[in-house]
Every structure is written in structure tokens, then in C-alpha cells.
Design a protein around this nucleic acid. Sequence first.
DNA 1: ATAATTTAAGTAATCGATTACATTGAGTTA
DNA 2: TAACTCAATGTAATCGATTACTTAAATTAT
Lengths: 345, 345
Amino acid sequence: MKKDKITIYDISKKLNISAATVSRALNNNPKISEKTRALVAKTATEMNYKQNRLAQALKNGRTNNVGIIVPYINRSFFSSIIRGIEEELNPNGYHVIICQSHEEEENEIQQLNTLLNTQIDGIFMSVSKTTQTTDHIRKALEENTPIVFFDRKLEFPGVSSVVLDDFKAGFIATEHLINEGCNRIAHLSGDINLEIYRNRFEGYKSALKEYNIAYDKNLVIQTSSKIESGIQAVTQLWELENKPDAIFSAGDYAALGAIQELKNRKIKIPEDVCVVGFSNEPFTKYMELPITSIDQTPQMMGKIAAQVFLEQVKGNQTISIEKKVVLAPELFIRESSNRKLLKFK
Amino acid sequence: MKKDKITIYDISKKLNISAATVSRALNNNPKISEKTRALVAKTATEMNYKQNRLAQALKNGRTNNVGIIVPYINRSFFSSIIRGIEEELNPNGYHVIICQSHEEEENEIQQLNTLLNTQIDGIFMSVSKTTQTTDHIRKALEENTPIVFFDRKLEFPGVSSVVLDDFKAGFIATEHLINEGCNRIAHLSGDINLEIYRNRFEGYKSALKEYNIAYDKNLVIQTSSKIESGIQAVTQLWELENKPDAIFSAGDYAALGAIQELKNRKIKIPEDVCVVGFSNEPFTKYMELPITSIDQTPQMMGKIAAQVFLEQVKGNQTISIEKKVVLAPELFIRESSNRKLLKFK
DNA sequence: ATAATTTAAGTAATCGATTACATTGAGTTA
DNA sequence: TAACTCAATGTAATCGATTACTTAAATTAT
């Protein structure tokens, strides 16, 4: 059995005052005399009183818990975002409940419903790759539960989001390759149904155009974020007459697979082919041949998402603030695409 | 404003019965007639009734939330454990609240207190490296909050734990190096205040003894789980008269640093020196020179920790069951220590 | 000195679900 | 038919904190 917890009634009995007074004193209500407030505060500490957050939550309808839905928590990108959210919300008294969708729409719907039922004060989410419908999200919004999207967003009036400027990321990655002297740049795209991958692709095309390089659709291959997928892409690309001299992958794992296959074929990196990945996964910089990659500043993304949420709940509830934050990508140039470095060796 | 939520009173009003009856019907209380039960169930669905878990939790003292305290969530090892716990608990209606200690005792204490105050039903934790005192844990136990330790445990009567057999891990890692023909095996130890690192170290010594290799304390260097630490260790080791021909690191990051420094010194791996790491971090297998490592089956660890917890809360609360689970480590042999492989090349 | 106002605190309802105890009425037994 | 069961449901207290509304006492104003 749980040890008997101290309640405001215990304090009120001990001091011969009403529970209401105790409650008010603890909440620094100005109607309470300084003397009583101090006495209650002292007694509360002495008796080791701890406010029952359940009762409080039941009364005022706020739990100080928020939910986060991510595809997977053990991906560096997502766990860093979670860490960012947590570090911003914890000092504000919020706790974070984490759920995984495993990239399955069905799980996402179920997790969202459970969260709503658990009475969270808000939801942070990155939409699953397979999500086609939006009824579950509409339902959350109808219940007036604030949602903040990060990385993978959906468009709803009044709903805030924090995303990366994927277009720009695609642009600077491609531009960097062009600057390295490449002009047959292949693109390993992600699932084109997702906005983020579409934007990276568009950024790529835009850079080509800007530098007057003809766009060749044979150089674009849709991949999943898996190593095998990168291996297969290279296999396919190297069947072309006119082979690529660079690869810009929309994901680090596919980039890694591509590099493995290129090495397999004794193709030199970066001399023959330059490679750029996406996400700046920890492994990219640990490789013997460190991989150039786009950093999405995930921890910052989480931090900002949390700030947007706090702004929203602290402000006037009847006004809905929609805030679209777009973070700038950062290109980490490493050996897999750095030909200049070679000259110094 | 939140949309008005449907309560059992709304249902009771609609059906002209008491709220008690509605509650009982929804809970499948046998005292309720089948007819009423069915009617209530039907009406509840129609009205889109959702049980208020806060009210329920306040009444019966259980929230169906558990807390997890880990040093960092964005470490593959810990996030995989969390995933394991989650996947086991979610189907049982539990939700998981995650906190990070950042390896600071002070944070650990604070997080634990906040969790207790949040009325969680149990706590899963891996003790921070810097934790010296145990008052906070004793306090949780006094409040009868079940605790399950994983990986890094503390000894308390009645408290369960799920850990790796680190002694065995140290033993098989070292034995493997001996089998590869090494006999001056260095050990990059972790913080020796932590049981896990002591055990890995003991396993190492035990293997040396078993194979009649003299233990040389100059070959043991205490490192932190950082790359730089591994670089520094190699620098120090290579100042020795009699240099090592193998390195068993108690962490993958130190192993990675060691490998970087060895390559820097043009020392061949595994020909001249074999390297084994610990944790099987994702990057170990993606390297150009994949690193041999000990897998701690973290997801399994989380799964089992969750099972232990469920057993405990489902059983008779007045009996405390203490369960010590020790998982077997698995050695993934890769190129960094596989000399046999060379012959086939 | 008395009325008006302010201050400090108390009373009781409320949040939503659960449950010990009470009640009703149909059916059973002697 | 009176006494008794028992199934089905109702009443009201409870979990702990908050707060609208009241009240008592102290202070100020007239």
C-alpha cells in the first residue's frame, strides 16, 4: 500500500484553518495575509507536503503533460528533437510522453487517440510516411488540443510548425557539388509523397538550373532510407551510358550504401565521384571517409517547437496563433565531397 | 476553450439512470443486467464518450504512467531500451514518461522527485555515473513506488533489475582477442566506480588468467566514453616499451578514437593490432573497417524490464518480488579483430 | 460613535469516476 | 399471504485541489 500522502486537509487540520486557506496560501493568493502564508508554507515543508497533480489536473483541466509522436525514437534525428523539446519544457513544469508510429498510419492514429484520452495539454508530431488521412488530426484540433508539427508537417489553419528549409538544403548541397567541379549529379530522393523530400528534390533541380546544368531524370532515383537502397541505386546508375560524377542523397543511410557500392566498384571518392548525404547522422563523421551531410539542427528544432507551444498555451487561449518556423540547414563538408582537401595531402 | 467532454453524467441523463449504473455498466460489473450494459455501451459509443483517466486515476490512485530515467535519450543503447519498454507496456495501457539525468546526480534526484510527484505507477532507471547517494531512491521505495533498474543498478532489498552479464562480456571479448593470437591486450576501462565497468574489467582479467597471460596494469587505462579519450589512450599506450597487440575497449566511442589514432600512426588493424569495442553502436558496423563489438541486446533489456514491472504490479501488492535478470552478451566479430578473414582476401 | 469599506478567512460546490451502503420490487418459500 | 431472497439500481461519499460566494473582523470614513 502506498504510504499515506499528505494533503492540504492534513495541513488545515494541524493549523486549525480551512483547506481553502491552505490552498490559497500555497498558491500565493494575495488575499491571504503574509503571516498565514508563511506559516502554511513552513508547515507544508515540515510535513513534506506534495501537491497531488492529478487532483489539480482534474480541477483545472491541465495535466502539464505533452505528447510527442515520432516515427522511431531510436533514430538520432528524432531522439535529438525529443531532447530539445524536453530541455525546453521541463523547466516549465511539463513532462513529455513519447510515442512511436513506426511509420504506420494506423499506429499514428491509435497513439494520437490514446494521447488525447490521457489528457495531454498538447501534441508534438512528425507525420508518418504512410499517413494518407487526416481525420485523427482534425479530431485533436476539434478538441482544442494544440498541435505543433516538426520536420514533417501537414497544413491546417492555425497550426504551427517547425521545419527545415529543405529546398535550401537541396540547393546548397547541389551547389557545393557543382563547386567541386561535378556536373552529372545524381539525386537519391526519398519518398516523393513527403513534402520534405519533394523540397530537397526541388532545391536540387533549382541549383542545376541556376548553374545551367541540364536536368536528367535518369539521374534521379527514389530510395528508402536504407543502406541497401543506396547500393541498389548505384547499381542502377552505373548501368547508364553517361555515368554520374556526384551523388546527392536525401538520406545518410542511402548515401552510406552508395559509398559502399562505389568502393566495391573501385570508384574513388571524392576523386571520381563526390557524395553528399542528409541528416548528419552521427556515423557520417566517424567514418574512415567522413561523409559530407546536411545538418538539420534537430535539437534546435525541438527547442523551437517547444517554445512555439509555450507561447501558444501561455497566450490568450481564444486567439489561435499560427507560427511557421523554417530553420536554415547547415552543410558539413567532409572528405566524401571535398576535392580541395586532396591537394593538401 | 476545450470542447465539452462527454461524462458518465451525460450518459446517465440521456438514459434516465444513475451515473453509478453507467459506471458499473462500462466496467462490466456483474450486478448490472445485460440489457442495461448493452444499452449503456451503445449509447457511450454513440455519444463518443471517453473515460477521463484523470478522474479515474485520482480515485484509484493509479495513473497508468511510468517514468524512465536514463542518462541520455539520444544514445542508441538507451533509446533502444526505451523502445523495448514502450513496446511491452503500451499494449498494457501504460504510457511512458522519459527523463534524462545527463549523468548528473543532481538532475537524477530532481527528475525522480518530479516523477514521484507526477504520480507515476513505477520507475525504470539506469543510474547516472556521478550518483553517490541513494536517499532519493530510498524515498521512492518508501512511497512504495516500484523501481526496476536496468543496465546500471543499485542494490536494494526487493528491487528488481535487468542487467547484462558484463563479466562474461569482458571475458568473451578478451578470449576472442586471445584466439586471434594476441597476448598483450590493453583494456580501455570505463569509470571503475560503476559496477558494469568493474565487471567488464574483471572479465578481462579472468580471461587473461584462464589463458595464462600475465596481467599488466600498464595496459589498463581508464577512459570516458568519448572519442578523444580513445585517442589519448593509444597515445599513452604507445609510449610503452612493450606495445599492445590488441585493445579491448569498454565503450565503442573510445574504441573508435583508438582506431583513428592507430591509423594515424599507420598501424594496421587487425594485422598489427586487433580492436574490440562495447555496445554495438550502429556506427560500428557501418565503418569502412567495421568494429567488433559486444551487443547488449538493449531492446530485449527494455522488454524484460517491462515484463518484470508488469509481474510486480499485477501480482499481490503486499508481497515484494525481487527479480534479478542477467542477459547474455553477444559478440559481433567484425574486421577490426578478424584476422582469419584476411586469409581469404 | 456608527455606517461603509476592506481584509482575511470559511463554506460548499466542483472536476469525473468509483463504490460502500441503501433501496426497490419481483420472485421464492413456508 | 407474510417473510424472505436477491438481482438491479440508486444515493451519496470519496479521491485532493480549486474557487465562487459568504461571512466575520478590522479599518476607515462620516
